[in-house]
Design a protein around this nucleic acid. Structure first.
Lengths: 205, 205
DNA sequence: GTATGGTTTAACCAAATGGTTAACAAAGGT
DNA sequence: ACCTTTGTTAACCATTTGGTTAAACCATAC
């Protein structure tokens, strides 16, 4: 028998369980019964609290996306220097994902499967645009501290180098023939490796 | 009524249809009936030719993976210089994916969902390891033409910068506020942008 | 022509799945 | 004590889904 403490009510139990199952199996692969089991409750309760699978899923997705959005916002809307943005994002993001390894896959997969999610989420979350970053970068390029590069391309590169390894984990582990520990060690190294790489790439010679 | 030409038999019709549906919806999201409709045949024929959904899926996945594997192999096992490897892969891969935009998502998603796929595929396809590339890179680093960097990290970076934009397409389009055409144009630019970026990053100053 | 073999289909089936219902339990207010 | 609201459950339901079957179709060989 499950005892409820003050901070463990059924609703958050369900959300936590749904998070685990959806991130592991995706929207289509997840079973409502499986989520109920994971939460240790009756299946009908899922519908009592969240009406439908779709709504439960959207709640989970929204929550997941809310965790990542601010970090991207930091690159685009922050007042720090380009160098600092790169260093901070690299360091913070890799640390963050190491705690939530399923998150990137979950988000990108469902974003691709259901394209209108992004417009839905865009409305509810304060969603960043690239404009400010663009101006900042143009200033730096004009100053001559940075080689000419489009803001869009640099932004893509920053995201790519940080996020991709976690999306491609099984492939990378297989090709580089590394076990879980060695992979984690590689990611740990990337906290500085990646920012050095980027800064080196855009620095004037 | 569908006429069969010499090179259009039912089996390849099914494979083509399955490719489309599986890449669009994933293993769990795809419906056998939908694949049959796409192929313009009776659902029972799917089982006549491929026994089960799982086997049909594995055939499609295997085929998809076979398209990408040789390109990765080119980085790792080729005899060309590091610079050429980067230039060629960048140029070829981006061109290739522009023709098969669903491919990367499909592969990485299912690779994450079903980890033992990779060992299955590894057995049937001549699958590259990183050893040769590692030695080549160590030689270059010792020569002093390239800054010190681990082969694993450089390899990850090359893949990341090339593959990630296609995985993150919906997010990127949304944040950079670009339409389909502009996105494609950005990718076209990356054919040279990415290799310059990488080479700049690893070149001795 | 008709026997033979692979190919294709409509109809069918059992299991699984998201969702509902009605009854019951707990909690809280009066 | 009694009633109302909220939370929880077992049983149930309609539909969907992967898969099967038995009969029909059709080319080719005899």
């Amino acid at each position: 028998m499950k005892l409820k403490t003050k901070d463990s009510n059924t609703e958050t139990d369900i959300l936590n369980a749904a998070e685990v199952i959806f991130q592991r199996k995706g929207l289509d692969g997840a079973r409502m019964q499986e989520i109920a089991d994971e939460a240790g409750i009756n299946k009908a309760l899922l519908h009592y609290y969240f009406r439908s699978k779709q709504l439960l899923f959207e709640t989970v997705f929204h929550k997941a996306f809310s965790l990542i959005a601010p970090q991207i916002k930091a690159i685009l809307d922050d007042n720090s220097s380009i160098d600092d943005k790169i260093k901070n994002f690299t360091n913070n993001y890799i640390a963050f994902i190491s705690e939530h390894p399923y998150l990137p896959n979950f988000i990108f997969q469902e974003l691709n499967r259901n394209t209108d999610f992004i417009s839905k989420v865009q409305k509810t979350i304060g969603f960043p645009t690239i404009d400010k970053f663009k101006k900042q970068l143009e200033r730096e390029v004009k100053k001559g501290t940075i080689i000419p590069i489009k803001a869009e391309q640099l932004f893509i590169n920053i995201l790519a180098l940080n996020i991709f390894p976690f999306l491609a984990k099984p492939l990378i582990k297989s090709i580089t023939n590394t076990d879980e520990n060695t992979f984690n060690h590689l990611m740990e190294e990337r906290k500085t490796e990646v920012s050095n790489f980027i800064i080196n790439a855009i620095k004037r010679k």
